[in-house]
Amino acid sequence: MTEYKLVVVGAGGVGKSALTIQLIQNHFVDEYDPTIEDSYRKQVVIDGETCLLDILDTAGQEEYSAMRDQYMRTGEGFLCVFAINNTKSFEDIHHYREQIKRVKDSEDVPMVLVGNKCDLPSRTVDTKQAQDLARSYGIPFIETSAKTRQGVDDAFYTLVREIRKHKEKMSKDGKKKKKKSKTKCVIM
């Protein structure tokens, strides 16, 4: 069974824990209790493949930012979460993405942009803004509501699919490099 290491990042209060708990335990946590770091595991079937999701729910508070490099190193894919009623959390996505790329030393890291709290009427981040940002990053965008469960499975499952595509691409690139290195030079 394939294991996928997913990391949920975003500013404090955007609903990272609520999304994760909704996926794992099928219930909505409405009281806000700032996370330092929590880890969850769940076995699911995605596109006919049974897999184990190892999900790291991270601290959004700035005082825990020193811990970010460590979990970013171990993560295979990242859910970059903002709240649709919090423009600052949307603007912060850029910083999370840049930090992930720096730590992973790669421009090509599996990510999904997630606009959470889409059940709320007080939207300050337009869907088109988020779609445009995701398009500019070359990553999928999904709106979710941890409260109603809308888009929750889709967000995590899409990230797994992005990781699969990335692994497939990397193995193809690896095979191309191996083929090239088999060419021999004969000096007579």
Rank of each mutant, 00 (worst) to 15 (best):
E63L: 03
E63S: 05
E63G: 10
E63A: 02
Y64T: 13
Y64E: 15
Y64M: 10
Y64F: 09
Y64C: 10
Y64P: 14
Y64K: 10
Y64W: 09
S65L: 05
S65K: 06
S65H: 05
S65C: 09
S65V: 07
A66C: 08
A66Q: 10
A66D: 12
A66Y: 10
M67S: 14
M67W: 04
M67L: 11
M67V: 10
M67K: 12
M67A: 12
M67H: 13
M67C: 07
M67F: 10
M67Q: 13
R68H: 13
R68V: 09
R68Q: 13
R68A: 13
R68S: 12
R68M: 11
R68I: 04
D69P: 07
D69E: 08
D69Q: 05
D69C: 02
D69S: 06
Q70S: 09
Q70I: 08
Q70F: 03
Q70W: 07
Q70P: 11
Q70M: 04
Y71I: 14
Y71R: 09
Y71Q: 15
Y71K: 11
Y71E: 14
M72H: 08
M72Y: 10
M72E: 09
M72Q: 07
M72G: 10
M72V: 07
M72P: 09
R73K: 11
R73F: 04
R73H: 06
R73N: 06
R73P: 08
R73L: 08
R73Y: 06
T74C: 12
T74Y: 10
T74V: 07
T74K: 07
T74I: 08
T74Q: 14
T74F: 09
T74N: 13
T74D: 15
G75H: 07
G75D: 04
G75W: 09
E76V: 15
E76K: 09
E76H: 14
E76W: 14
E76G: 06
E76A: 13
G77R: 00
G77M: 09
G77Y: 06
G77Q: 01
G77P: 00
G77S: 02
F78L: 06
F78E: 00
F78D: 00
F78I: 11
L79H: 03
L79W: 01
L79I: 12
L79S: 00
L79C: 03
C80G: 04
C80W: 06
C80I: 14
C80Y: 10
C80H: 02
C80Q: 01
V81I: 08
V81R: 00
V81H: 02
V81A: 06
V81F: 13
V81N: 05
V81M: 13
V81E: 03
V81D: 00
V81S: 04
F82T: 12
F82H: 08
F82C: 13
F82Y: 12
F82K: 01
A83I: 00
A83N: 15
A83L: 01
A83G: 15
A83S: 11
A83R: 05
A83Y: 01
I84C: 15
I84K: 09
I84R: 11
I84G: 15
I84M: 15
I84V: 14
N86M: 03
N86G: 13
N86F: 02
N86S: 12
N86H: 11
N86R: 03
N86T: 07
T87R: 10
T87G: 13
K88I: 06
K88R: 07
K88D: 03
K88T: 07
S89T: 05
S89R: 00
S89V: 07
S89Y: 01
S89C: 03
S89F: 03
F90S: 02
F90E: 11
F90T: 10
E91G: 06
E91R: 02
E91V: 11
E91L: 02
D92C: 01
D92A: 14
D92G: 06
D92W: 04
I93C: 01
I93V: 10
I93A: 03
I93K: 02
I93E: 00
H94W: 07
H94I: 04
H94P: 02
H95S: 05
H95F: 02
H95R: 13
H95V: 05
H95K: 15
H95W: 13
Y96C: 09
Y96W: 14
Y96R: 01
R97N: 07
R97C: 15
R97A: 15
R97Y: 15
R97K: 07
R97S: 09
R97P: 05
R97I: 15
R97W: 15
E98H: 04
E98I: 03
E98S: 06
E98A: 07
E98G: 03
E98T: 06
E98C: 02
E98W: 05
Q99S: 09
Q99L: 14
Q99H: 08
Q99G: 06
Q99Y: 07
Q99P: 02
Q99W: 15
I100M: 06
I100P: 00
I100Y: 00
I100W: 08
I100Q: 05
I100N: 05
K101W: 05
K101A: 07
K101H: 04
K101P: 04
K101G: 05
R102G: 12
R102I: 05
R102P: 02
R102C: 03
R102Y: 02
R102H: 04
R102F: 08
R102W: 00
R102V: 05
R102N: 05
V103G: 06
V103C: 03
V103S: 07
V103Q: 07
V103H: 10
V103N: 09
K104Y: 11
K104D: 01
K104L: 12
K104V: 09
K104M: 11
D105R: 10
D105T: 05
D105K: 06
D105G: 15
D105Q: 15
D105V: 11
S106A: 08
S106F: 11
S106P: 06
S106W: 13
S106G: 13
S106K: 05
S106Y: 11
S106L: 13
S106V: 09
S106T: 09
E107Q: 11
E107H: 08
E107D: 12
E107C: 12
D108Y: 07
D108V: 05
D108C: 07
D108K: 04
D108P: 07
D108I: 05
D108W: 08
V109Q: 02
V109R: 03
V109P: 06
V109L: 04
V109N: 01
V109I: 11
V109F: 11
V109Y: 11
P110F: 04
P110A: 04
P110Y: 02
P110K: 03
P110C: 04
P110E: 03
P110L: 03
P110R: 02
P110M: 03
M111G: 01
M111A: 01
M111Y: 02
M111W: 05
M111V: 06
M111S: 01
M111R: 00
M111E: 01
V112L: 05
V112M: 03
V112D: 01
L113D: 00
L113G: 03
L113K: 01
L113S: 02
L113E: 02
L113Q: 00
L113A: 03
L113P: 02
L113C: 10
V114M: 09
V114I: 14
V114K: 02
V114N: 00
V114H: 01
V114L: 10
G115D: 02
G115T: 06
G115H: 04
G115L: 11
G115C: 09
N116T: 15
N116Q: 14
N116V: 15
N116R: 00
N116E: 04
N116M: 15
K117Q: 12
K117I: 15
K117W: 15
K117E: 08
C118M: 07
C118K: 07
C118P: 04
C118T: 09
C118R: 04
D119H: 03
D119F: 00
D119G: 08
D119W: 02
L120S: 12
L120E: 14
L120C: 12
L120M: 11
P121R: 10
P121L: 11
P121Y: 12
P121M: 11
P121A: 13
P121W: 06
S122M: 07
S122G: 14
S122P: 09
S122A: 11
S122L: 08
S122I: 10
S122E: 14
S122H: 12
R123D: 14
R123A: 14
R123T: 13
R123M: 12
R123W: 10
T124R: 09
T124S: 13
T124Q: 12
T124Y: 10
T124N: 14
T124L: 10
T124W: 08
T124I: 09
V125S: 12
V125H: 11
V125Y: 10
V125T: 13
V125N: 11
V125A: 12
D126C: 10
D126S: 11
D126L: 07
D126P: 05
D126F: 09
